[in-house]
Write a protein that binds this DNA or RNA. Structure first.
Length: 856
RNA sequence: GCCCGAGUGGCGGAACCGGUAUACGCGCACGACUUAAAAUCGUGUCUCGCAAGGGAUGUGGGUUCGAUUCCCACCUCGGGCACCA
């Protein structure tokens, strides 16, 4: 045994793992555990230290589960469709497929060099036709159920590049490439009706174990709110003089029968329509002084003939429509609007006629696209009222439910969530598998024609009209209708990069299946659904197949929500057994560069894991990243501190070396066993006080590390192992079995070094030679050590003695000693007496095994 | 503006359920080993004070025998959402 050479050891151990396939998950074998990380986008920059953090954390969990006897599925794949690859292809002329191949090769090599225990036999790639066949297939199921539909919606249009941009490509309202301000333009887009699942996506968060911040962020995004829908009748103004006088003299009663009666009057020939508003504050109905419609509201066009200032209004609407989302909703944007002159709305609560306005601060796609304005209670309405000199009146509040009922409205639930814009005018994505037939209209491809492969193109840039590059390949576009065999054209849009990642966790279960997206039997196994469960149907309102899913906070409202939506849809089609895909979700914080800034190429502060592995080794990098700080928080990278983790690894190595070369006294040489600890190898005689203390410390550490891994407190787990290593190195006597237990709990963190030492120790273990036991193949398949309850209890503890809450002395006590005796001891203590100084003792508080507080 | 999260040494951070604040690591200083250096090991390292002792967990209050922990107000930073009626 020689000096610790991480390069040699790690290479050797990794080759051995590969040969023996020890991380392969086997279907239908024993109790399963499914741990998952978000599969990375294989960018040209290679693996980031941030990826490493998440992969290592779940690797630790997965390794511990294996040692606990679970059949663990810890898979990996590539979320490879996406813009950076496509942009790189445009710039270099290289084929996206080739770029992706190169990048995934790099990522794979890097993950392997980190010693992550992925099951490489299940690797998937979203750009592989064998994979996206099923992405397209699921899309067609959405289509068949009417949940995938086409709609004219506004997109971000860059007037200089003459292309439509995805929201991700618009930065501060400007085109990411040329910096031109983008405009809104109407375009026919594919949509997925996620809003149909809004209620369930909100409610079912109760069924899963997600961090509170993730749940609240999703709930925020879904934006459920309960309110009232109330109708305002629109009429030509009548009795305007009478109304004005009413307005100024009306008393402040809230329960006004004559006002309600007034409602009937308005159903005259002046009636023009009904304006439905949504409000969460129906209680303020008596404070309404005007109503506002979104400029895009359908009713506006219908009312136009009756509006006196229709030219001005039309002009106003045109201007608003041209504006981008940012211009319209940007920060501190001043609200603009225009009154629809010549018509009035009637407040159903008191029959008052109020003016009707349209304004940019009312959104067409939320609620009913119209609001009742109560400047007294709403700051936005107040701003607007002040600007346009609209009345602001104060009226008493009434009961929401009561008033809603009284005015003939109803209580409703609304969501902020909007349907998902599912098409991209891009090349590097899954083609949408439908054709437009002149005769039959939109026709989906049949399953046997899937996958609809992405064709090769010469240019990846968009066409002149802003369509996908696919639109330029007439050979591909012009096809036959699957239904009537007549002429048809393919859809040329592709899916967003969120498509492939919405169901990938299911494919890992059965990655090579050619006939189904996943085999239901395998899915049931990996979801822990037994035949018995199937009969009882008790499993449905649970989450699975994934037991533990770790990923970044940045995916909380997009990927995580989208994949929950797809899963629920598949559940409704009876294709997956449970309503939720992920039982438990955790999120890690970002790793930042020095000074707490994001790592970026332009700042030159990007840390390449390859360099760290080369210099310090994968084990050191793994320990370092886990030791950085609390896993769920962000962390600041500091290359200078890595040395601490390396020292720790080397320290453990030195202890191992000492044992292997027999430079230490080993309890094993003592005969008989130890009755107290039940360890057959340890004799009572050999167990000196110091070595018993070491044994106790070991068992406490086993307990702590086990618990800390479960709660992802990796930093404190490592800290406790550092303490143990220091104590072991100091100790004259080290029990080989005890040291092996230490190696086992360290193994998930530093899998290479511990594997090597474990092997060395096993080979050198003379008892095993005597027993002719088989040499254990890998520490990672050994059993997670159990701690001894008796050994984690202390017989003696140090407690503090406080006088008036201040620590004045410390004493050792036996745990078995009674409270009275301990208090007596404390009151006799010299230092304590000095502070009491004859004063009257009012109270003595004893906290078991902690402290005594004497109040004087 | 709203919703989360967080403020502890020179730095990253510990502290269970309200019970000895500053574990562990980095850095720094000194010492041992060495011809020397590196590595390693040891000692020290919040602050004021010679000491006895006092003061410190963003700030100011409160509850309590006792508060980093609970409550109220405020300040700062990070993240998310943002004209959502």
């Amino acid at each position: 045994m020689k000096e610790y050479n991480h390069l040699k050891i790690e290479k050797k151990i990794q080759e051995n793992w590969k040969k023996k396939e020890i991380y392969k998950a086997k279907d239908f074998k024993g109790k399963k555990y499914y741990s998952l990380i978000e599969f990375p986008y294989p960018s040209g920059d290679g693996l980031h230290v941030g990826h490493v953090r998440g992969q290592v954390a779940m690797d630790i969990v997965s390794r511990k589960r294996r040692m606990e006897g679970y059949n663990v599925l810890y898979p990996i794949g590539w979320d490879a469709f996406g813009l950076p690859t496509e942009n790189y292809a445009i710039k270099t002329g290289k084929r996206p497929k080739v770029i992706t191949k190169k990048n995934t090769d790099t990522f794979r090599k890097q993950a392997k060099s980190l010693g992550i225990s992925f099951d490489w036999s299940r690797e998937i790639n979203t750009t592989d036709p064998a994979y996206y066949k099923w992405t397209q297939w699921i899309f067609l199921q959405f289509y068949k159920k009417g949940l995938a539909y086409k709609a004219e919606i506004p997109i971000n249009w860059c007037p200089r590049c003459k292309i439509g941009l995805a929201n991700e490509e618009v930065v501060d309202g400007k085109c990411e490439r040329c910096g031109e301000m983008t405009e809104r333009r109407m375009k026919n887009q594919w949509m997925l009706a996620i809003t149909k699942y809004a209620e369930r996506l909100d409610k079912d968060l109760d069924l899963v174990d997600y961090p509170e911040r993730v749940k609240s962020s999703q709930r925020n995004w879904i934006g459920k709110s309960e309110g009232s829908e109330i109708d305002f009748k629109i009429t030509l103004p009548k009795n305007s003089e009478k109304l004005l006088s009413r307005f100024s003299h009306s008393n402040l009663t809230t329960d006004n029968e004559s006002n309600i009666a007034y409602k009937a009057e308005s159903t005259s020939q002046n009636f023009l329509g009904v304006l439905k508003v949504f409000t969460t504050r129906a209680d303020t109905l008596f404070g309404v002084t005007y109503v506002v419609l979104a400029p895009e509201h359908d009713l506006v066009q219908k009312l136009l003939p009756n509006i006196l200032n229709k030219n001005e209004v039309s002009k106003f609407i045109d201007e608003i429509k041209k504006k981008s989302e940012l211009e319209r909703t940007g920060e501190n944007k001043e609200k603009i609007g225009i009154e629809l002159k010549g018509i009035k709305a009637t407040n159903p609560a008191n029959g008052e006629e109020v003016p009707i306005w349209i304004a940019d601060y009312v959104l067409a796609n939320y609620g009913t696209g119209a609001v009742m304005a109560v400047p007294q209670h709403d700051t936005r309405d107040r701003d607007f009222a002040e600007k346009y000199n609209l009345p602001i009146i104060d009226r008493p509040l009434v009961d929401i439910q009561e008033i809603t009922k009284k005015v003939g409205g109803k209580m409703v639930t609304k969501f902020k969530l909007r349907d998902w814009v599912f098409s991209r005018q891009r090349y590097w994505g899954e083609p949408i598998p439908l054709v437009n037939c002149d005769k039959c209209g939109l026709v989906p491809l049949s399953e046997k024609d899937l996958p609809l492969k992405l064709p090769e193109v010469k240019k990846y840039t968009l066409t002149e009209t802003g369509e996908s590059p696919l639109a330029g390949i007439s050979k591909w576009v012009n096809t036959k209708c699957p239904k009537c065999k007549g002429k048809a054209k393919r859809e040329t849009d592709t899916m967003p990069n969120w498509a492939g990642s919405s169901w990938y966790y299911l494919r890992y279960i059965d990655p090579k299946n050619k006939n189904k997206f996943v085999d239901p039997k395998k899915l049931n196994y990996w979801s822990d659904v037994s035949n018995k469960d199937l009969k009882a149907k008790s499993y449905k309102l649970k989450a699975g197949p994934v037991d533990w899913y770790n990923g970044g906070m940045e995916h909380t409202t997009l990927h995580l929500l989208y994949s929950r939506f797809w899963h629920k849809f598949l559940y409704d089609l009876k294709l997956v057994p449970m309503v939720e895909p992920y039982k438990k979700r955790t999120s890690h914080g970002m790793i930042l560069g020095a000074g707490g800034v994001k790592m970026s190429k332009s700042l030159g502060n990007v840390v390449n894991p390859d360099d760290i592995i080369k210099t310090y080794g994968a084990d050191t990098l793994r320990v370092y990243e886990m030791f950085l700080g609390p896993f769920e928080d962000g962390a600041i990278w500091n290359t200078e501190s890595i040395i601490g983790s390396r020292r720790f690894i080397e320290k453990v190595w030195r202890i191992g070396e000492k044992i292997v070369t027999k430079q230490t006294n080993n309890f094993r040489n003592c005969a008989l066993g130890d009755k107290r600890t039940g360890d057959p190898h340890v004799s009572e005689n050999c167990l000196s006080a110091s070595s018993l203390a070491l044994k106790k410390l070991l068992h406490k550490t086993i307990k702590k590390v086990g618990e800390d891994i479960e709660s992802m407190h990796f930093n404190t787990a490592i800290s406790s192992m550092m303490i143990l290593a220091t104590e072991m190195e100091k100790s004259e006597f080290i029990n080989t079995d005890d040291f092996k237990k230490f190696l086992q709990i360290l193994a998930p963190f530093a899998p290479h070094m511990t594997e090597e030492l474990y092997k060395q120790l096993t080979i050198n273990n003379y008892e095993l030679k005597i027993k002719k036991e088989k040499i254990i193949s890998s520490i990672h398949l050994s059993s997670w050590p159990k701690y001894d309850e008796n050994l984690i209890k202390d017989d003696e503890v140090k407690i503090a003695i406080q006088v008036n809450g201040k620590v004045r002395a410390e004493i050792m006590i036996q745990v078995s000693e009674s409270e009275e005796i301990i208090k007596e001891k404390a009151l006799k203590n010299e230092a304590v007496l000095r502070f009491i100084n004859g004063a009257e003792i009012r109270k003595v508080i004893y906290v078991k095994n902690r402290l005594i507080n004497i109040v004087i």
